[in-house]
Write a protein that binds this DNA or RNA. Sequence first.
DNA 1: TTGTACGCGTTATCAT
DNA 2: ATGATAACGCGTACAA
Lengths: 322, 322
Amino acid sequence: MITMTEIAKLTGVSQPTVSRVLNGSQNVDPELRERVLACAKEHDYQLNALAKGLQGRRTKLLGVLVTDISNGFFADLAKQIEMEARKSGYSIILFNSDYNPQNEREYLDVVRRYRVDGVLAVPIRETSGEWQEYVKKLDVPMVMVTRQARGLDSIYVDHVQAGAMVAEHLAERGFQRFLFIGRDYDRKYTGFRRTLEEKGLGGRTANVVYQDDAQLNQALRDWLRSPGGRAGIFAGNDIYAMRVLDALRSLGIAVPSEAGVIGFDDTSMGRYLNPRLSSVSQPIARMAREAVARLLDRIGRPEERPPLDLPLQASLVVRESA
Amino acid sequence: MITMTEIAKLTGVSQPTVSRVLNGSQNVDPELRERVLACAKEHDYQLNALAKGLQGRRTKLLGVLVTDISNGFFADLAKQIEMEARKSGYSIILFNSDYNPQNEREYLDVVRRYRVDGVLAVPIRETSGEWQEYVKKLDVPMVMVTRQARGLDSIYVDHVQAGAMVAEHLAERGFQRFLFIGRDYDRKYTGFRRTLEEKGLGGRTANVVYQDDAQLNQALRDWLRSPGGRAGIFAGNDIYAMRVLDALRSLGIAVPSEAGVIGFDDTSMGRYLNPRLSSVSQPIARMAREAVARLLDRIGRPEERPPLDLPLQASLVVRESA
DNA sequence: TTGTACGCGTTATCAT
DNA sequence: ATGATAACGCGTACAA
């Protein structure tokens, strides 16, 4: 690939002059400009971004770290982020932690090696103090998306509130016992459980951790077998929700008359499922926009500033499943 | 971020010695090694990959260009590629063309600016001679995934054959008229239509281009209203298939007794749909593996070699929908 | 307006 | 075994 120096030789000018022309400086003889541009075009000159990044201050690279890109929600998020970043001339280095903290650490090292200007991250365990300590030492601007981490820029939907909202809805619709599919430290479960406890239904709520379909099936069967009335099930994400719907179907349990299901993320497929999935919708595009804006702002003005905590409203999209 | 030169100063050795230690050269005094490593660890040294890339011959960066990362199939593909590349120490710069050829061109420029070692691409219109010309001028190793482009390394499933397979299946199951959801230049349609024509059913097959749900609904309604017996519908991808299933449900048409549906990509959600979606499965992991292997091979041995044309077998996963 | 000189952080080559 | 030194391609300061 041709370089400025080579163009300089070919056109008989100095390399800095080529640089000036290519960067649109006005103080250049029109004739030289012409020659240089023609040569650059002919050889399809492309700036060496590594050289620029090495000597200059910006690489125009952003790291994006997600837990699972094959999850439609994160795929969508990544897409929006990419679109948004592109508007400012940024490119994306994508990483997938696969919910493995070791991968996460490695990636954060890689990202720094490439001297990315900043990172947008969906951390695995954002609440751990360890994570916050680690991030702060990184001295790379970093914004959490979809997750709240105290002391760090965070743009997210309030999972606690979302969980509470789901609990309200299920209780209101007459469900009598409640199940959350996911880990007990999930903030959604916190809000879900708390709200149900306030209603005196704490004893009737539990959670099941998803491992695989067979285990989910078994756990659901056991839980449903015990008496207790209509079951309101809140799934930690739409994928779990879809699997729960499937399990219920194979158990011969009618939805929503015998059991209701509410998902999380409002993945696009939700509206095509049978029954159509009720789900908590997150404003993906808005989160991406805000997060990129904040990150670019941090990059542009590196002064110390208090962390941004921007909780956004999730909304419950009620369809057929609950 | 600390550099080799700084470590050199702190430990009182020369910068090349630091380089040797950090790169694991054996010809280093154990005592110096110790000091250097300790210092590097203390300051959390991270190699400057830009400097290395600038000077050396490898950036350890791969470009990945897909048409739509929010499509579960491509998201999955990207994930597999990333996992595979990581095994060889490569990181991924992700691009989304969004089916816009202009984006595609821009991205290929960006990719070259960052001096990626190679590119894995799902081109928008791989058949156009323009594309092939362009790629050849790029002088960046490039492998097509999921698409066949003559004269370029291509790893893909044979869409013509896949379409034929679907036609066979639908005809065998007693469907009497046939619809393809997608563009008429889609190779799947080519194989689908050809096979049906061979069976004397050419007059009973048509295609509908998906634009939006309302239009799909209308088109389906019109097509189904005309007489002709059981309808076998082949959707260009699982997303379309899901929408078709939904449309059929709202039209009150029973699946698969009145109409059958077969998707494409065998997205993970397929097995949870109601009815479970029959779909053509592509060996994603295998494609990712082969493609990355081929690309790394090209990178490692840049000599001219004839292009690789590797068609893989798609398989029909028969579930409930057809 | 244009050119010379230098530095960014690394690897590689050559002495020592 | 270790240290000078050059080179990669760019932007920038300074000189002309």
